[in-house]
Design a protein around this nucleic acid. Structure first.
Lengths: 113, 113
DNA sequence: CCGCATCCTATCCGATACTG
DNA sequence: CAGTATCGGATAGGATGCGG
C-alpha cells in the first residue's frame, strides 16, 4: 500500500455522501419510509433548521441518493424518496449502526467501573 | 422513528471516528501492517503534512483505535499499531471500500456516455 | 526523527428574518 | 408549506518555521 492519498481512497467516496451532521438521520428516515414530505422530515428531526434540512437534501439529491418530487399545488407539496441507488448504502449504515451500539456499550461500561 | 437528533444516532459514533480527511487511509495502512513508524506512514501517505499526520494519529489514539509506542532512543522511534478494538472497524471500512468502487464505476460510465 | 506553535483560509453549521 | 437570504461563530485543514 504505497503512495495513497485521499483522492484515490475508495472509502472516501461513500464517506463523502454520509458526512454531514444530519445526513445519516435523513437517510435512515427515508430508508424506513419513502416518500416523506419536507414537513414530515422536519417533524421527525426536530432540532434541524429548515436551512440545514434543505441543504442536506439538496446535496443528497445531487448525488442521486434521493429524489425530490414537487407537486404543483397551493400550498406546495414536496416529497423526498430514497432511490434504488441510495438503498445500496444500507449495508454501510447497518454496519455503522451496529458498531455504534457496541461502542456505546463499551464506553458506558468504562464510565461505570 | 421519531424525534431523532444526531446525538442519539448510533451511526454517528462510527462516523466520528472515520471522519477526517486522512483517517481512512491511515487506518487502512495500519490494518494492513502494524506496527508502522511515523516516518513509514508519512512515506506511505506522501501528501499529508506532518502536522495533520500527528493530529489524526493523536485523535485515533485517544479513541483507542490505535496505540502509540515511543522508544527512548536518539533519534526517536515511534510506532503506531491498530488495536484489537480498532480492528472491529474493518467490516465498515470494507463495506465502504466496496461501495466506493461501485460508485466509481457508475460515475465513470456516466461520464463516458 | 518526531512533533509543536503560529498563522491563515475555507467550509460547516446555527440563528434569524423574509417570501410565493 | 417549503423554501431563500444574510450574518456570524466554530472548526477543519494547509503552509511554514522551530526544537529536543
Amino acid at each position: 500500500m504505497t503512495n495513497l492519498n485521499p483522492d484515490f481512497c475508495e472509502v472516501n467516496e461513500s464517506l463523502d455522501i454520509l458526512v454531514g451532521k444530519w445526513k445519516p438521520i435523513i437517510l435512515l428516515n427515508l430508508l424506513a419510509e419513502s416518500p416523506m414530505r419536507f414537513s414530515e422530515l422536519k417533524k421527525a428531526i426536530p432540532k434541524i433548521t429548515q436551512k440545514m434540512l434543505t441543504k442536506q437534501l439538496r446535496e443528497l439529491e445531487s448525488q442521486e441518493i434521493i429524489i425530490r418530487k414537487v407537486y404543483a399545488q397551493v400550498p406546495p407539496r414536496v416529497e423526498y424518496s430514497i432511490t434504488k441507488y441510495g438503498k445500496t448504502l444500507q449495508p454501510i449504515l447497518d454496519a455503522m449502526h451496529e458498531w455504534g451500539l457496541k461502542h456505546k456499550e463499551r464506553t458506558n461500561s468504562k464510565i461505570t467501573i
